[in-house]
Design a protein around this nucleic acid. Structure first.
Lengths: 201, 201, 201, 201
DNA sequence: CATGAATGAGGTTTCATTCAT
DNA sequence: GATGAATGAAACCTCATTCAT
């Protein structure tokens, strides 16, 4: 029936979607999550306004899809690090380092938090975001537990420590928003040091 | 007409302004900084739309005034704690405890961060917010330095430690947004523990 | 609190609403129910687009309010005629005559019918329209019954006769749409004649 | 390539066109003539949007073609009945019965009336619709005249009676729209009775 | 022939701000 | 001071139509 290459069509579609989401993240970074318009996002992607709606049902869907992909990707990343064969401190360092080095991390963080506000997005989206956030704590908590068994990490509930670790990094991440940088460096080694069990005098 | 009346009028005016700003904080928190309308703010304050303009020049002025008062008040609070006569650890505990106990802290934090985004507010506001944030680090850094001299706090650049301390608390604060709570407690004692120099062994 | 005349405000508001609905009916008459825009309605009322939303929540509300007022008013009219003291034939004549003479009757009829279509309006509106239509048959049926007792009207179920009577008038009404008139007159006396019991011969 | 294929292609094309128009009628009926989209029509026909334009020049062409075929077909039907060899009453009965039994009659009727509204379709279409409607009255008027000569039908201008007869049936037809049915039956025999000359007494 | 991506104009609705009362 | 009507720009989203594949 169709003289078109269905497989290629689907591939192209996925590439477009990826492209839109990528540009959208940067655009939201510049405009701010509550003020960005479909017009902005379309312009950033180099597409017409109307065409956005061939790929996404609504502006909200774009934002929630960015969140879904971002959080899922981050979860995979964290899990991969947690499963490596090295000390807990090395893993914590890698986690902190990779997140702080990420160009767009502040954008993801601000998206995660503002999207959880009641009217900014649907109940569904908010729940999903929080759930994924909580799930992503799991691997970090596992690293904390491993470190405690190795005697390398301070004592305390591993999940609680993971919670602090991630909150600290997110808090620092937010200070990196463009045009508003605080002139103080955030170093992975210093962060890890806070969670290191000190045996020296 | 009489001086007494002028004085009373001014007092009433200040009370109204205070009332508006108070209600607005919660409303902006719920609606999102980029989506809140003057209508929402007026409804929250129980006033008419038009009447808002007797007290504020614009919607942006309301937001920037909330931020100014909030950050200034927080700065005074931090300074007062830093100047008390007690150990650095006790001061850190008081700082963490008071901020975590504050009902609206998450709202202030989200406001601070979203207001710094490029188009959400004017260049002027963004600069002021960042400047006040940086200034408020000073007293915390002083506490860190005091603690290091007392041998109670981990080594490192005091300003950097203060930066981490505040970022951690802000990060935790964001998890307390209504309807999106992560089921993990944030305890002041645990936070302080991370910054405590451990002499065991 | 309010230095404005609340009573006068409310009266003015009702007058505006009435004015909008009046102009809207005519406009829908010209543009067609599915193609009329808020812009058209606002222009017809001599108001700005945005101001329409001070009086109505949506375009649909305007249409359903026109229907509600129109059908209710018609129901009152029919009831008033049915309760008069005269023969059934005279009542039928008055009903036919008044409806055929009404300038806007075709607009009401087309609104009633198109609004009942599934997607043109909400389930709620459709139900209300049909219910009011059915209710308005009651007084007409009463007239039919009276006429049968008087021996003036043809035999048959009074409600069914009322149904035919109203359907016939509505069908004729539709032929009166502007620019599409069929060059045949619709006369009340001829209509009544169809329902008259003939005793001649 | 061969003449046979061309012939077959044309036949298939006509079948497709017929299929599209058939599905479109129901869809336009449900969505409303001013709100139906090419997308809706394409989906109803189970075809792609773009492909519609191989069969029709525009959305308006689809609508006007439905009307043309529907009214022409109805005209032929009426003419056929009028030319049969039986009494006028039997013919009237057949006319009423066949139209009331038609599943889609209400859709045709609503289409006829809404398409006559000024902006819903072109001046050309509106004129054609009204002209065909008037023409279709001819055979019915002929039946009325025949009936009067037979002494079976009430006196009056035959064309006017035909006009009433068709208007009544159209009015009843509109009450049959899906989801909005009035719980009163429309019976061909009762309708014919209204136009029957009664000789009793 | 068949498909669906692409466009841009236009539709509905919201909103900050002004102003008469 | 207090109110809410009024405006018009701009937001989101839809859609008829075209076109490359």
């Amino acid at each position: 029936m169709s003289p078109r290459n269905v497989e290629k069509d689907l591939l192209q579609r996925e590439q477009r979607i990826h492209h839109i989401l990528d540009s959208a993240l940067e655009t939201i970074a510049v405009k701010g999550i509550g003020s960005v318009s479909i017009n902005d996002i379309a312009a950033a992607a180099g597409m017409s306004i109307g065409n956005m709606y061939h790929y996404f049902k609504s502006k909200n869907e774009i934002i929630s899809e960015i969140l879904r992909r971002g959080q899922t990707g981050y979860g995979d990343h964290v899990t991969r690090i947690a499963e490596q064969e090295c000390t807990a401190l090395e893993k914590l360092f890698m986690l902190a380092e990779s997140w702080l080095a990420l160009e767009n991390s502040w954008a993801y963080t601000i998206l995660i938090h503002t999207s959880r506000l009641s009217d900014a997005s649907s109940e569904e989206v908010r729940k999903a975001v929080t759930e994924r956030f909580t799930n992503n704590l799991g691997p970090v908590a596992a690293v904390m537990k491993q470190g405690q068994q190795e005697g390398l990490i301070v004592s305390g509930d591993p999940l609680e420590l993971a919670y602090y670790f991630v909150s600290l990094i997110q808090g620092l991440t937010l200070q990196k928003m463009p045009g508003a940088e605080v002139p103080i460096p955030a170093r992975a080694s210093s962060i890890v040091a806070l969670f290191t069990a000190k045996k020296d005098h």
